[in-house]
Design a protein around this nucleic acid. Structure first.
Lengths: 157, 157
DNA sequence: CGGAATAACTTGATGCATCAAGTTCTTCTC
DNA sequence: GAGAAGAACTTGATGCATCAAGTTATTCCG
């Protein structure tokens, strides 16, 4: 807690940051709205199902899903419980491995992701991937990775 | 609802998008956590106060605040009610102008923003502005503006 | 080999966001 | 100038996110 005058943002920095902040506020809602109206899914729920669907055995441990979706284990646990109640996946304790738990995509879950994916990808294309230059998308990736590393340092080694 | 095979994302596109998605999930939480622990404010609450504090008369109409913070009027209304209950701002109906309402920052609100700003700016610098190249920040601005324009077309004219 | 620390979740309470519906003025149209 | 349409919010219900605390194996250590 110093009393020195902080380094405020320059005009360019401020403009960049405000634009980014607007993106943070609006984009999640836009993605949610589309998935919600077409498939009754949250963007985050979709991510969970999608991550599972990419595995050969449609199975992944809770912690690994959390890592893959950048979420807390607590958030994931609540969501998985809801998805399980809907029959889209089921949980299985891994015997002899502490409290480790796998989530397994059910057939109904698979059908759901397959139904949701085209519309979702089309939306992501329309809003972002097809809207910006390839260079800018690469920049966005660099930026995101840098910022994420700063948020929790040493998460990827 | 076409049955054609959709255009899936290429590896580069997918990597860019996943990184961006991770950013969308983690950055808001990181900003909230800092403001919450230091000043008991949400990032969004801070934005509302900050926008008001930049006006000479510390006054702005609800709709204008909503536009400046990229939020819905509904969300803003709830937040402003909470901030008013804490004495950080007050609302004033503008007479003879329909349901138009101004929000006015109180002295307590001013003190709060002034107290919160340095820590918040430092955090934004550390996580984003100072972490990425100036070119990349410019790219982020371009990207954000493009995406926002796609989300609700013709919001800025 | 026993007790403490750790890992991997789960749960419950609280609070914020969103959506749909309701209010209350003003303005436009005939 | 009356009634309809629209603008600018407000409100209440619902649901999701977060935080702190609780569980339940497992491993480490003396």
């Amino acid at each position: 807690m110093t009393t020195e005058e902080p380094r405020w943002l320059s005009d360019d920095e401020l403009a960049g940051w405000m634009a980014a902040a607007a993106l943070l506020i609006k984009l999640p809602g836009a993605l949610d709205a589309q998935l919600q109206s077409e498939q009754g899914l949250t963007f985050f729920e979709y991510m969970v199902l999608a991550v599972l669907s990419e595995r050969d055995d449609r199975t992944l441990q809770m912690s690994d899903i959390a890592a893959a979706t950048s979420s807390s284990l607590s958030r994931l646990s609540h969501v998985v419980k809801r998805l399980e109640a809907q029959g889209l996946l089921r949980r299985e304790r891994i015997p002899g491995a502490g409290r480790r738990t796998n989530a397994v995509l059910t057939d109904a879950g698979w059908v759901k992701v397959v139904a949701a994916a085209p519309g979702h990808v089309a939306r992501v294309r329309h809003l972002l991937v097809d809207a910006v230059a390839a260079d800018d998308l690469a920049a966005l990736r660099r930026i995101s990775e840098t910022v994420i590393e700063r948020i929790d340092p040493g998460r990827s080694c």
